[in-house]
Write a protein that binds this DNA or RNA. Structure first.
Lengths: 235, 235
DNA sequence: CGCGATTATAATGCATGCATTAAATAGATT
DNA sequence: AATCTATTTAATGCATGCATTATAATCGCG
C-alpha cells in the first residue's frame, strides 16, 4: 500500500516542526487537505508520527501565512480562497512581478542566466503545442520563479515567492477555465527579450500590459466560476 | 522602579505565545533589544514570566519574519539591517504603496475617509513647522498606514503593513540624516488630492515620482552612513 | 606551561503531564 | 417530551521532563 504524502517518511534531517510545517502546507497545496478540511492536533500528530508540540508550532506558522484557521477547540481548518482572495493575490503578484521584471532588466543578466529563461519558455511552448496543461503550468511556474529570483531584491523575492506559492492553490481552478495561454508565452518571451536588451522600461510595459490582460481574463473566469457556484446544476 | 516594556505586565488576555511574540518584536523595534542582542530561551522565558514553550514558538515566528536569527545553541540574535536591506525594503515598500495609492484612488473614498488623511497631513505640517522629528515620523507613519489600509486589497495591506513596520527599524537612522521633509508633505497632500478626485493615474505618478526622489536621497544618506561606518572617527 | 582529550554543563527540540475549559451527553424537573 | 442543568469527555496552552548535543571547563600529557 502506498503512503500518502502526509505519511511520506522523513527524508532530510530538518527538525520535526519544520517537517510538519512543510508536509501540512504541501498537503494543502496538493488539496490532499481540501478547503474546509479540519483536523485536531492529536490526529495530526498521530498521522505525522510526532508529538503535539512540533505540530502546534507548525500550525501557528501556517495560520500566520493565512493557509489555515485555528480555532480553540475545533483544531485547524483549511481556509477557502474566495474569488476576492484570488483577485487580490493575482493583483499583488502582478505588481510584484512587474517590479521584479524592471529590476531584473536593470541588472543586465548574464547570457547563462538568460538561457534558463529561454529553457522555461521553450518548455511552455512545447507544452502548449502538446496541449499539456500540467506541463505548461509547471513551466509557467518555473518562469515566474526565475523572474522573481533574478531581481536581486531579497525582500521582494521572499514576498513574491510566498504569494506565487499561494497562487498555486487556485492555479488548477483558473487553468481549467482559461483559454490556451498563447499570449502568455509570447509575452514572457518579450519580457525576456527586454531583459536581454537591458531595457527596464520595455520590460515593465510588456509585463504590465500582459498582467492587465490576464486580470481582465481572470475577472471573466471568476464571474463564470461565481455563476457556476451560484447555480452549479443549471442546464 | 519602572518596568521595561519587556517586563510590562500582561494587560489583555492574548495567549502567552502571542504576548511573547509581540513583546519581543516591540523590544526589537524600540531597540531595547538592539542589533546583535543575544538571548537564550531560558533567560527570555524568565524575563517574560512564562515557560520556554511559548517563547520558543514566538521566536520561530520572529525568525520567519526576519527579525531574528535562531542558532541551535546560541539562542536568538537580533539581525542587523544592512544598507542593502534598507534599500531593498524601501524599494519594495515604494512599489507596494504606489499600487495602494492607485487602487485607493480607483475606489473613490468617502469624504470622511479623506478627512483622516487630511488630519495626518496637517499633523505632518505642524510637526515640520515645529521641527519636531518624532511627531513628524509618527504622523508620516500614520499617513502611510492609512494609504495602505485604504486600498482594499487585504493581501496587499498585510504585506505592506509588515514591511512598513519593519521600516520603523531604520526610520530613526534615516531621519537623523535626511533634510527637512518638506517635499514629503507636499507630495502626500498631492496624492490625497488625486485620491479625492478619484484619479488613479495621477496618484500613481505623484507617489511614484515622490518615491523615486526619496530613493535617490536615501542612496545619498546610505552612502554617508556607509562612510561613517567605515571611518566613524574621521574629522 | 601549553595543548589536546575527556568530562561536565547546559541549551534545544520534542514528549509528556496537567490545569483549564469548551463541547457533548446524561439527567432532572416541569 | 422538551428544556435546562449537571456531569463527563477531551482538546488546548503551557509547564516540565528527558535525551541529545554543542560548548565549556577540567584534567592529563608532552
Amino acid at each position: 500500500m502506498q503512503s500518502s504524502p502526509l505519511l511520506k517518511p522523513v527524508l532530510d534531517d530538518a527538525p520535526q516542526s519544520e517537517q510538519a510545517y512543510r508536509r501540512i502546507k504541501q498537503a494543502i497545496l496538493s488539496r490532499e487537505m481540501p478547503v474546509g478540511f479540519q483536523s485536531l492536533e492529536p490526529a495530526l500528530a498521530l498521522r505525522l508520527g510526532m508529538s503535539r508540540t512540533p505540530v502546534h508550532e507548525a500550525l501557528v506558522r501556517l495560520q500566520d501565512e493565512g493557509y489555515i484557521d485555528l480555532q480553540p477547540r475545533r483544531g485547524m481548518r483549511v481556509v477557502a480562497l474566495s474569488l476576492r482572495d484570488i483577485r487580490e493575490i493575482t493583483e499583488l503578484l502582478a505588481c510584484l512581478e512587474v517590479e521584479a521584471a524592471q529590476q531584473t532588466a536593470a541588472r543586465r543578466l548574464s547570457t547563462e542566466d538568460i538561457a534558463v529563461f529561454d529553457d522555461a519558455i521553450a518548455a511552455m511552448d512545447r507544452a502548449l503545442e502538446a496541449s499539456d496543461i500540467d506541463a505548461w503550468n509547471e513551466a509557467d511556474y518555473r518562469f515566474h520563479l526565475l523572474l522573481i529570483d533574478a531581481c536581486g531584491n531579497r525582500h521582494l523575492i521572499d514576498t513574491a515567492r510566498r504569494f506565487l506559492e499561494k497562487a498555486n492553490r487556485f492555479r488548477y481552478l483558473t487553468s481549467a477555465y482559461r483559454k490556451p495561454p498563447v499570449y502568455s508565452n509570447v509575452n514572457h518571451a518579450a519580457v525576456v527579450e527586454a531583459i536581454r536588451r537591458g531595457d527596464p522600461q520595455s520590460a515593465v510595459e510588456i509585463h504590465r500590459a500582459h498582467k492587465r490582460r490576464w486580470l481582465a481574463e481572470l475577472d471573466e473566469i471568476l464571474m463564470r466560476i461565481g455563476d457556476d457556484r451560484a447555480a452549479p446544476d443549471a442546464p
